[in-house]
Each structure stands twice: as structure tokens, then as C-alpha cells.
Design a protein around this nucleic acid. Structure first.
Lengths: 122, 122
DNA sequence: TCATGAACATAGTGTTCATTA
DNA sequence: TAATGAACACTATGTTCATGA
């Protein structure tokens, strides 16, 4: 059971950023990896942030390895041969704790950028 | 004359972030590497961002290699044996252009974090 | 063929070692 | 002995290859 790396010294990293979105996605529906990827790409199209599929899968696998999520394989539809992997919260406490940490990281990062913009733009 | 890497897909990287502060520092006074480091550490103490000296020097060297700055060695004080390296703008146009790019990167990064916080916190 | 996942390669950065006056 | 800079090592992430149904 590996620990997740949630905080670093500089800005929040891409992996935890994506993991926070994964937790959100799971509150809404049950998208699978590629769908999450597409939602992220669409959401940040304007900013030019287009994550690649490997990073999504690494984010998901880490969440499984750390005991937050569990994975289950399904057929995409009854008449389809295509298999997908969907995810569920395994440990609610861990998920809540993680989410809090990640939001802190987001806020910390935002604070740094705001400071920098204040410092520079005057 | 190497080009600087100013934009990436995800958030702004530490190196360009520091380089933007270097440009600002040079507008104010003529601090040398370690002084810049200390100013940065002090400024972001609250956020726990404590860059290390190697990263400052890499940022400075890159700015020299790309033709934005030039370096000059000096004695720290007349009666001191200690040498320091101070920096000057070599190419004003380049410096202005770079600063704009970096501010754009900051704003882009800020926009992404704001979006994420909106998405998550509701 | 699509979704998944692993392997491989590179970039970014932290840590440690070296130099010089 | 402080300031600088290089070397080294590890982490984060992008790109490419592989697999299964």
C-alpha cells in the first residue's frame, strides 16, 4: 500500500491535480479512464492543457495502489466486446482526507501565483 | 544561444518562475545569486516554498545562455576577498518579451487553478 | 479497433561534491 | 568560509510500443 505524494515544495504537480479531478468525477458518474481524459482536455482546452492518456492511468493506478479506489472491469455495453475499467471509492475516510490535502495544495499554489503576479505587475 | 523554455502544457515550471523574479530583482537593485535566493525563500516562507541554490544558479545561467543577461564578477566589498557574480540586462527587447511571456504563463496557470477550485469546491 | 497499460526516453529539480579567492 | 557552479541522482511526465477482447 503505497503512500501518495500530495505535497511538494513548488506548485502542485500534474498527478495530484488529476487525482483531485478523478475524485470529483467519481462523485458525479462513473466515467472510465479515457472519458476522464476527454473531460479534462475539454475543460482546459482554452489554457492549452491537454494531458496524455498515460498520465491519467498513472493517476488512477496510484489511487488504487494507495487504497483509495478499487477498480472493476466491465463491458462497455451488453452487445460490445470492448472492456473498460471503472473505479469506486474503497476507503471513504482516505478519500476525504486526500481530497482535503489536495485542495490545500491547490490553494497554496494559487496563493503563490497571486503573490508573484502582485510582485511583478506593479 | 539557447532558447528558453517558457511554456509547458501544465502549470508554469519552477525555473521560469524564478527567472521572472530575477528580472524583477534586477529592476530594483543588483542582488547576487544567494541574495535572490534568500529573498525568494523569505517571500514564500508561508507557503513552504524554499528553493535551493542550484535552481537559482541554473535560472541565471539559462538567462545568460539565452542572451538576456550578462554576468560580471565583483568583489563583495573593497576589503573583502569574496567574489560575487552580478547580472545586467544585455538585451532589453528580449528581456521585455520574456517578461511578457512569463506573465502570460503565470496568468494561464492561475486560471487553471481557479477553474479547478471552482470545479471541486462546489 | 478502442481502452488499457507498460516500457522507454527526456525534462525538471533536489542533493551532494568541488572550486576559488 | 561564503558564493558559485558542476555532478549526480531521482522524480515527474511525455512518447511510443504492446495487449486483449
Amino acid at each position: 500500500m503505497k503512500d501518495l505524494r500530495t505535497s511538494s515544495s513548488f506548485l502542485i504537480k500534474q498527478r495530484p491535480f488529476i487525482q483531485l479531478y478523478v475524485l470529483k468525477f467519481l462523485e458525479d458518474g462513473r466515467p472510465y479512464g479515457i472519458q476522464m481524459l476527454e473531460q479534462l482536455r475539454e475543460r482546459f482546452k482554452k489554457e492549452g492543457y491537454q494531458p496524455n492518456h498515460a498520465e491519467i492511468y498513472r493517476a488512477l493506478h496510484d489511487l488504487v495502489d494507495s487504497g483509495v479506489l478499487k477498480a472493476s472491469k466491465k463491458k462497455l455495453s451488453a452487445d460490445s466486446y470492448q472492456e473498460i475499467t471503472t473505479y469506486f471509492i474503497r476507503d471513504v475516510q482516505k478519500a476525504i482526507h486526500l481530497k482535503k490535502q489536495l485542495i490545500n495544495e491547490l490553494n497554496r499554489s494559487k496563493a503563490m501565483l497571486m503573490k508573484a503576479l502582485e510582485d511583478i505587475e506593479d
